[in-house]
């Protein structure tokens, strides 16, 4: 699974993208976020407030209950501020 981090999620984790292999019990977006919180201090800080996060799975906005699978591209970012 490929993870992408944007804006301050990239700054706080110190990572723009990484390849991860979560355990099989990580089946949803919510599971993945909980698993990532335990991945290190940078991740824990970046993912401390899940209400400040938006998630896209394969470039589509996703909800906490949406499934994630090996091979997916999952992006984590704050609410968007373009325009």
């Amino acid at each position: 699974m490929k993870l992408l981090y944007f804006a301050w999620l990239k700054t706080k984790t110190g990572i723009a993208e990484e390849e991860v292999a979560p355990p099989p019990e990580v089946a949803t977006v919510a599971d993945l976020l909980a698993w990532l919180q335990g991945r290190g201090p940078g991740h824990a800080e970046a993912l401390a407030d899940l209400s400040a996060l938006r998630v896209a799975v394969n470039q589509e906005y996703a909800l906490p209950g949406d499934p994630v699978r090996p091979g997916d591209e999952v992006a984590l970012f704050p609410p968007v501020t373009g325009g």
């Binding site: 804006a7 700054t11 896209a56 970012f77 704050p78 609410p79 968007v80 373009g82």
Partner: peptide
């Protein structure tokens, strides 16, 4: 403004700051 994935980082005298939605 609310759907396209863009993020603004502003450079101020106090440092660089991500714009909040």
């Amino acid at each position: 403004k609310t759907k396209a994935p863009f993020w603004k980082l502003e450079e101020k005298a106090s440092g660089a700051e991500w714009v909040e939605a």
